[in-house]
Design a protein around this nucleic acid. Structure first.
Lengths: 179, 179
DNA sequence: CTAGCATTTGAACGATCGTTCATTTAATGT
DNA sequence: ACATTAAATGAACGATCGTTCAAATGCTAG
C-alpha cells in the first residue's frame, strides 16, 4: 500500500514489494495470485471498510437533515484523513484495474455517494437546503472533502478538530442552510 | 497526451506513443530528449496556458469581490472542462515528475491558487465573505471545481451553462455571500 | 541527375518486468 | 530422531522497457 501510494501501481515491481516485506519475489505468489489482485484487494477492502464504518456508526435516526449532513461530513473527514494512502490509491489507480474489478469498485463508490445524495435530496424536499441540484452538490461536496487529503498534515497549522469545523461550515453554507 | 491520460505515464511505452503518431520509437528522440520531458512539457504548458489565460482575460478591475469570485469560478470551469486530458494528467502524474520538474509545476500551481486566495482574503477583510479560513476555502473551492472534470460529460443531463450556474451558486454560498 | 542534408528506420543494448517452478530450507507431528 | 508438510528461495522464462546508433531513405538545392 505504501509503495503503491508513493510511486503508483504501474511503477512498483513485485520485486520491490518483496524486498519491502523481506522476502523473494517468488514467495509473494504464495499469498496472491497476481499483482492485480494486490491492487484490487486493497481498494475493495477500503470501500468495504468505508461502507461498514458508516453503517455501524452510532446512529440517531430521528436526526434532522442538518444533523445528518453534519454527521456525514464529520464521518467522511474522520474516516478519510487517517487513511491517506488508501484514499490516494483508490482515487488514482482506478484505471489500473481490470474492467471487472473496476466495476466492483465503482458500484461501492456509487453506494457511498448515494448516502450523501439521499441526505441532500431529503433536505431539499423539506426545504431545509436551498439546493439547485442535489446530485451535483453531492459530487461537489465529496470532491471538496476528499481534497483535504491532498494538503492536510498532522503537524500543520490547524488541528483536525478545527479543520473539521471549518469544512463543516463550508458544507452547510454550500447546502444553503445559513440564512 | 491522450495515451498518458488513458493509461497513465508509467504504463505507456515510447513504442505505443510512436505507433500513435505513425513512426518508429527511435524517431521520437529527434523531438524529445526522453520520456520524462514529454510528461513535463505537457504539464508545464498546461500551467502556463492556465496562468496566461487568466491574466489575459477581459479584466474589469473595479469589480466587487463577489464579481471577482464569480469571474474566477466561471473562468476555472470554462478553462478546465474542455481540457479533460491535460487536467487529469496534471493531477495524477505529479509523482512521476523528477523532483526539479515537480517543483516547477508546484510553483505554478501555487500561483494559481493564490489568485483565488487573494480574492477570498479581500472579501473576508471587507466583510463580504463570511469565511473562517480563506486558505482552506481556497483548497476546498478548487477541489470542488476541479472535481467536475471527473463526472461532466457533454452529452450529460445538464448543459455546461447550467452546471456553471449551479457551481457558482455552491461557491458563493460556501463563501458566505448568501444571507 | 546528383550532392548534401534531414529524417527515419530497425536492430541492438542492458535492464527490468510479472510469473513459474524445481529445489532447498524451516516447521511440525510422532 | 525422523517423516511429512509448509514456506521460501533463486534461477529461469519470454516479454517489454527506454534509449542509442549505424544504415537506409526522403527531400532539396544546384
Amino acid at each position: 500500500m505504501r509503495l503503491f501510494a508513493q510511486s503508483g501501481y504501474a511503477a512498483v515491481s513485485m520485486r520491490q514489494i518483496a524486498r519491502e516485506v523481506g522476502v523473494q519475489a517468488g514467495a509473494l505468489y504464495l499469498y496472491t495470485p497476481d499483482k492485480q489482485s494486490l491492487l484490487f484487494d486493497l481498494m475493495d477492502q477500503h470501500m468495504k471498510d468505508l461502507l461498514t464504518a458508516w453503517q455501524s456508526r452510532e446512529q440517531a435516526n430521528a436526526d434532522s437533515v442538518i444533523e445528518q449532513l453534519e454527521c456525514f461530513v464529520r464521518f467522511h473527514i474522520r474516516f478519510h484523513l487517517p487513511r491517506a494512502d488508501e484514499v490516494f490509491i483508490s482515487y488514482m489507480e482506478l484505471r489500473n484495474l481490470t474492467p471487472e474489478n473496476f466495476d466492483v469498485i465503482q458500484i461501492a463508490r456509487g453506494a457511498y455517494e448515494e448516502i450523501l445524495h439521499d441526505i441532500l435530496k431529503a433536505g431539499q424536499t423539506d426545504g431545509t437546503f436551498k439546493l439547485v441540484d442535489p446530485k451535483i452538490a453531492t459530487f461537489a461536496i465529496i470532491a471538496m472533502l476528499t481534497g483535504m487529503n491532498t494538503w492536510y498534515r498532522d503537524e500543520g497549522r490547524l488541528s483536525l478538530e478545527m479543520v473539521e469545523e471549518i469544512y463543516l461550515d463550508l458544507v452547510l453554507s454550500a447546502a444553503g442552510t445559513k440564512d
